[in-house]
Nucleic acid binder design. Sequence first.
DNA 1: TTCGAATATCCGAATTATCATATATGTGAA
DNA 2: TTCACATATATGATAATTCGGATATTCGAA
Lengths: 110, 110
Amino acid sequence: MTPLQLFKCLADDTRLKSVLLINQLEEVCVCDLMEALALEQPKVSRHLAELRKCNIVQGERRGQWVYYQLHPQLPTWASAIINETVSNNQGYIADALAKLKTMKQQFSSC
Amino acid sequence: MTPLQLFKCLADDTRLKSVLLINQLEEVCVCDLMEALALEQPKVSRHLAELRKCNIVQGERRGQWVYYQLHPQLPTWASAIINETVSNNQGYIADALAKLKTMKQQFSSC
DNA sequence: TTCGAATATCCGAATTATCATATATGTGAA
DNA sequence: TTCACATATATGATAATTCGGATATTCGAA
């Protein structure tokens, strides 16, 4: 993966938040992201597809749901960048993260 | 500066290379970048203007030329990302960097 | 006036959003 | 089991928007 590819993927609000949330939570499903970001399903799905195409995330179907995680072969420098971004911009995903966490408590899943 | 702003700025070949080169060389003028990247002056200038607007770089006129450097108030996490990118993707700017260095040796400036 | 640099504008190309539809999985009833 | 249906996700097509490139013009300094 080239740095340009990575930055292009992260240069969109939906994709950036998705990546940062996935990075924080280890794995999330599409419906989680829909709720957390208050977005329509096709929109989330489309942006995840782009992230998949660049090997930034990896989707795995388990029954009804598809769970996304960071791609296991993500270069170290790329995940360093993601971590650096999260830890210094917690406000950027704070709302979504809070919503996700209360969701997880109330219902076992979507 | 928000992370989204930063990534949008870095999501373009000209801008990304310019930032990485400026990071490596401390400061460069527009004509340096034109030569190194083999681009027209207006193109370089326009992208630098975008980087200036986001406070990623800073331009300073000294006589005829305008010299650019990373913005002194660039957040630490942002410059960490830039450094992480450079040190793990040297090939991406190797050509431009080599051209710049031989230029600097042959002529004192543009 | 001349040269380096910045800005304005227009146009074409690439992105994104939206709607509709397709596929995959799970559930429950016949 | 098998069929119908509900839910979750993906994808296709098209409209709307944004973005980048080329050219011309303007600005600033020598």
